[in-house]
Nucleic acid binder design. Structure first.
Length: 218
DNA sequence: AAAAGTCGCAACCGCCTCCAC
DNA sequence: CGTGGAGGCGGTTGCGACTTT
């Protein structure tokens, strides 16, 4: 799968990696560590650019990377995180041990996104039928928002979720997400991580409120 | 059996931020 | 303070594998 090996205009090899190249890269990193990627090709004796080496290592060769099907728990977590923070794949990947941002992104673009769109469509059909169950009931993904692609979310820090009113928990999520933006700018990843935990708790709160609302409790 | 269509995923591209100078 | 290079990220592409007709 992937692309055939070919040479770029600057003479560097492009396309699919072969077993020999993988071996060279692995042994280089075992010896020198994940230091400066620019110097890795030279150290490893590879005719690749540093970026390509980095990508190959991070997405495929790195130890403890899980390959294969996503579990239901992982799927659920991806959906929840995506709802919360949008297409920030590296951040999502950081929450799912053994999965890479690229893999999650691919999974989303192929399997999950499609699945959710189908569910959404089904929800609309159900909603149109007078005897159908209320929307959202037992469906955490009914309001999935797929943010339009932007060049870099670093310059557009958040695609904030449109959590439905009138839930008080929704307000809390919104506020926490806004705070994340500010704190991210000011203090970096540690704070972001903390707020992500907080937001996940809030998201559970939103779901609870929503179901209570549907059930007529509030 | 073979052509056409679809899917899945590794890898590339281009933009952004960070940081050393 | 401005600049340039490196690393990181998300979007997109290319192509083999698989499925359908």
């Amino acid at each position: 799968m992937g692309r055939n090996a070919s040479s770029s205009s600057n003479g560097l090899t492009k396309g699919a990696w072969n077993a020999h190249e993988d071996k060279l890269l692995i042994s280089c990193i075992q010896v020198h560590g994940e230091g400066s990627w620019k110097s890795v090709p030279q150290k490893a004796g590879l005719n690749r650019c540093g970026k390509s080496c980095r990508l190959r290592w991070l997405n495929y060769l790195r130890p403890n990377i899980k390959h294969g099907n996503f579990s239901e728990e992982e799927e659920d977590l991806i959906i929840r995180l995506h709802k919360l923070i949008g297409n920030r794949w590296s951040l999502i990947a950081g929450r799912i041990p053994g999965r890479t941002d690229n893999e999650i992104k691919n999974y989303w673009n192929t399997t999950l996104g499609k699945k959710l769109r189908n569910q959404q469509r089904q929800t609309k059909v159900d909603a149109a039928l007078p005897t159908s169950s209320p929307p959202y009931k037992n469906d955490r993904t009914a309001e999935m928002i797929r943010p339009k692609a932007v060049n870099s979310t670093k310059s557009h820090p958040r695609n904030l979720p449109n959590v439905p009113s009138p839930s008080a928990a929704a307000v809390a999520v919104e506020a926490a997400a806004q705070k994340m933006v500010i704190e991210e700018r000011n203090n970096g990843a540690a704070i972001e991580d903390w707020f992500l935990d907080f937001d996940l708790d809030c998201l559970d709160g939103v779901m609870m409120f929503r179901e209570m609302d549907i059930d007529g409790w509030i």
